[in-house]
């Protein structure tokens, strides 16, 4: 039940990211130059008239003054499903406020979901596959293989990845879009990032290997690979799923750190990470707390991933037990 709810949330997020041109009220890069840092506006559904209330979705227009934003008193109708948009206003309307360049934060969040939702999954999957593979082999077979793989992980864990990225950034052609650049970076990061995870898996696998049902499986004539996949790896899945879901936000947030090097998603392209980075300033946070909105989306998406991961694990374990 919980998993279904989480799945629905993820589907909604993913769908709106895919259909961003329709779902988002504005383009992610359109600058309403006279509306920088506008506060969020509410959609009012009913309008007070002489005869009571009538149904007429609208927002109240705002205008910038030296003292801040003020309502002008004008009422702007909000149309649903017209002009190829899910939602369109007759005057600039910012449901989650606007950023300092006057761009609609809601629209940027919707477009930003394209990057932020996909990139974490890609990174985490590569890390998990490599980690399970190398950790599993090392722990299962032991000996020289174990030794070599473990020393390799130590090398990978010690490399200064900052400089690795910097050196590689020279090779990346400047013509690539920021999403392509970032995908390359994620691939690199996950190819060097599996080491720690693999070490833990290796320890677990080494101890599971001698347990009764593994010995039984081997005695019954099952091959090593089959035993590894059917009887050993499933026991590490609880740990794997937690680590995987925990690492998704690391990729989403890490992206904003990478933009310090010019390797993240760059202006004017939005991502949840780089939008949140703008809010991490005490004066900005106090003056316009709504710039934290992308953070709420990150938390929402990650919790959804986590819930789904947990139930996935539960069903896998049940299946394993059932056989």
């Amino acid at each position: 039940m919980k998993a279904k709810g989480a799945l629905i949330i993820l589907i909604i997020l993913a769908f709106s990211a895919l259909a961003a041109p329709i779902v988002a009220p504005y383009s992610y890069k359109h600058q309403f130059r006279s509306y920088p840092a506008a506060p969020p506006m509410r959609i009012h559904f009913f309008l007070k008239t002489d005869g009571g209330y009538t149904f007429r979705p609208h927002v109240r227009e705002i205008q910038r003054t030296p003292e801040g934003y003020r309502e002008t008193g004008r009422i702007c109708n909000v149309h649903l499903l017209s002009r190829g948009k899910l939602l369109s206003c007759e005057c600039p309307c910012f449901l989650l406020g606007s950023d300092s360049l006057g761009r609609d934060i809601l629209s940027r969040i919707i477009y930003g979901g394209r990057i932020s939702l996909s990139i974490g999954i890609v990174g985490v999957c590569i890390t998990a596959v490599l980690g399970l593979l190398f950790g599993g082999i090392a722990g299962y077979f032991g000996g020289l293989v174990d030794m070599l793989i473990m020393r390799l992980t130590e090398v990978l864990m010690s490399l200064p990845s900052f400089f690795l990225l910097l050196s590689l950034s020279v090779v990346i052609p400047p013509g690539l879009s920021s999403a392509q650049t970032f995908l390359i970076i994620v691939l690199i990061l996950s190819f060097i990032g599996w080491a720690g995870f693999a070490r833990v898996i290796r320890g677990m696998v080494a101890s599971i290997r001698t347990s009764d049902h593994v010995v039984a499986s081997l005695a019954m004539g099952a091959g090593h690979i089959r035993t590894l996949i059917r009887h050993v790896i499933p026991l590490t899945l609880g740990y794997t799923v937690v680590v995987m879901t925990l690492n998704i936000p690391a990729y989403i947030l890490g992206e904003s750190a990478l933009s310090m090097l010019g390797l993240g998603i760059r202006e004017p392209d939005p991502s949840w990470g780089n939008m949140l980075a703008e809010a991490l300033n005490i004066s900005i946070l106090a003056d316009r707390p709504w710039t934290l909105a992308p953070g709420a989306f990150i938390v929402l998406a990650v919790i959804a991933f986590n819930v789904i991961g947990e139930s996935l694990r539960a069903s896998l374990v049940v299946k394993e037990k059932g056989q």
Binding site: V155, L159, P160, F163, S167
Partner: peptide, 10 residues
């Protein structure tokens, strides 16, 4: 390897 990587950075 680290030394080489650091020196390879622009």
């Amino acid at each position: 390897i680290s030394f080489l990587i650091i020196q390879a950075a622009p």
